[in-house]
């Protein structure tokens, strides 16, 4: 089951540059929430705050509070937190030194799981959920780098799912892929919301409209508007949202 997230007065800096300026947002469980906005609006920083990846960058700083399922994420060890909050990156990044199988179970295995049977079950289950099993089941020992770009990205999704997170962050997961691979990923996202709370950053508004239950519009480090996707796209409250989605700027 996915968890709810509530974000309170979240501020983030990178160097002297404030990238998030007091975000308040409630994110429903088992929903797909899309984050849209022009480049540099802070949407990537926002999702990277949720699994505390932003803090790993030198010169970064965070203030505010994020509550995951009733508990502050800042009270937790970030390493433990990241097992609950999975992430898929813009560019597929399978581990080059590992096979397909090793990639999928990397998170579980490096955290101490040794039982071979269990690992195999996890690998199959995760690859099935990522809709990649049928394509790779005969070559699990091949290098992860031998797959096509779209397959690599689904491998990365499987790898994130194998850790059994409750929240899945996706930072423009299809922006480096061709249309067919993009379609695969979008179909996958719709299925995965049965079990996960999904946040997806995208600069592609059609994509947000296709897959998201609710959509949040970020501008200059502020959350301008957040509501059901259909409302944001047909009847936005804020003039700036309307300008953005009708293509008048950004």
């Amino acid at each position: 089951m996915g968890h709810t997230l509530s974000v309170r007065q979240l501020e983030a800096w990178y160097g002297s540059n404030q990238t998030l300026k007091g975000i308040n947002m409630e994110i429903a469980s088992n929903h797909v929430t899309a984050i849209i906005g022009p480049s540099g609006c802070g949407k990537s920083t926002f999702v990277r705050c949720i699994n505390r990846m932003h803090e790993t960058l030198p010169g970064s700083k965070v203030k505010g509070e994020i509550i995951l399922d009733g508990e502050s994420i800042y009270e937790q060890d970030p390493v433990v937190l990241r097992k609950m909050v999975g992430m898929v990156f813009q560019k597929p990044n399978p581990f080059p030194s590992m096979s397909i199988y090793e990639n999928v179970v990397a998170g579980v295995r490096l955290n101490g799981m040794r039982n071979k049977k269990t690992l195999q079950d996890i690998a199959e289950k995760s690859l099935r959920m990522a809709a990649l099993w049928d394509e790779v089941k005969d070559r699990l020992n091949y290098s992860g780098m031998s797959l096509s770009g779209g397959q690599q990205q689904r491998l990365c999704i499987a790898r994130a799912l194998a850790v059994e997170p409750s929240v899945l962050l996706m930072d423009e997961p299809a922006s480096a892929l061709d249309p067919i691979a993009t379609m695969h990923i979008e179909g996958l996202v719709r299925q995965l919301k049965e079990d996960y709370t999904i946040l997806i950053v995208t600069h592609n508004m059609q994509q947000a409209a296709r897959i998201a239950d609710s959509t949040a519009f970020f501008l200059n480090g502020e959350l301008v508007e957040h509501g059901p996707t259909s409302e944001i796209f047909t009847n936005p409250n804020d003039k700036r949202t309307e300008d953005y989605i009708t293509g008048r700027f950004g």
């Binding site: 699994n51 990846m53 790993t56 390493v79 433990v80 937190l81 990241r82 097992k83 609950m84 999975g86 992430m87 990156f89 560019k91 990044n93 399978p94 581990f95 080059p96 030194s97 590992m98 990397a106 998170g107 490096l110 955290n111 990365c156 790898r159 994130a160 850790v163």
Partner: peptide
């Protein structure tokens, strides 16, 4: 750098990310 981030994002500690990935 994205390889290191992928490791952290899976909940793998920095030390293990360095040594095993």
């Amino acid at each position: 750098h994205s390889i290191r981030e992928a490791g952290y994002a899976l909940g793998i500690s920095k030390g293990k990310t360095i040594l095993k990935i």
